[in-house]
Simulated assay, not measured.
Amino acid sequence: MTTTQTTTLSATRIGHACQLIEFGDFRVLTDPWFTQKATYYPGEPVAASVATLGRIDALVISHEHYDHCDLDALVSGGFDLTTPVIGPGTVADIARAKGFSDVRVVEAWESATVGDLTVTATPGKHGVHEVTFVLQSGGRTVFFGGDSLRVPELDQIPDRFGKIDLAILPTNGLCIRPMNYEQVVMDAEQAAALTAVLKPAMAVPHHYAFHSGQLADRMLTLGDQDPRHYADEVARLAPEVEVRLVLPGTRVVVP
Rank of each mutant, 00 (worst) to 15 (best):
M1N: 12
T2A: 15
Q5W: 04
T7P: 04
L9C: 09
S10C: 06
R13L: 13
G15S: 13
H16C: 00
L20V: 13
I21M: 05
I21N: 01
I21S: 05
E22L: 02
T30V: 04
D31P: 00
T35I: 02
T39Q: 03
P42L: 08
P42A: 12
P45Q: 06
V46C: 14
S49N: 11
S49L: 00
G54D: 09
R55F: 05
I56W: 08
D57V: 02
D57G: 03
S62M: 09
H63K: 09
H63R: 07
H65E: 14
H68Q: 15
H68L: 07
C69Y: 01
L71S: 06
D72I: 12
A73C: 10
A73W: 06
S76V: 14
S76T: 14
G77S: 11
P84G: 02
V85W: 01
I86C: 11
G87N: 10
T90K: 07
D93H: 03
I94W: 01
I94Y: 07
I94F: 03
K98C: 13
S101L: 09
V103M: 07
V105T: 15
V106M: 02
V106P: 00
W109C: 08
W109Q: 10
W109E: 10
W109K: 09
W109F: 14
W109R: 01
W109G: 06
E110W: 02
E110L: 10
S111E: 12
A112H: 06
D116P: 14
D116S: 14
L117G: 08
T118N: 00
A121I: 08
G124K: 08
G127H: 12
V131R: 12
V134F: 06
Q136S: 15
G139A: 12
R140E: 11
V142T: 08
V142C: 02
F143T: 14
F144T: 02
F144G: 04
G146K: 03
G146A: 10
S148D: 11
S148L: 03
L149I: 07
V151E: 07
E153P: 00
R160Q: 13
R160H: 11
R160N: 10
F161P: 11
L166F: 03
I168F: 03
L169K: 08
P170Q: 07
N172C: 15
N172Y: 04
C175S: 03
C175A: 13
I176G: 04
R177Q: 01
R177F: 03
M179K: 14
Y181I: 05
Q183T: 04
M186H: 02
D187W: 01
A188D: 15
E189I: 08
E189V: 14
Q190Y: 02
L194A: 09
A196C: 10
L198T: 09
L198D: 11
L198E: 12
A201I: 00
F210W: 11
S212I: 00
G213L: 07
L215N: 04
L215E: 13
A216T: 06
D217F: 08
R218N: 06
L220T: 07
L222C: 08
D224M: 04
Q225C: 03
D226N: 13
Y230A: 13
A235V: 12
R236G: 12
R236I: 13
L237I: 13
A238M: 11
P239Y: 06
V241E: 05
V243C: 05
V243F: 03
G249H: 08
G249F: 06
R251E: 15
V252A: 02
V254F: 00
P255V: 08
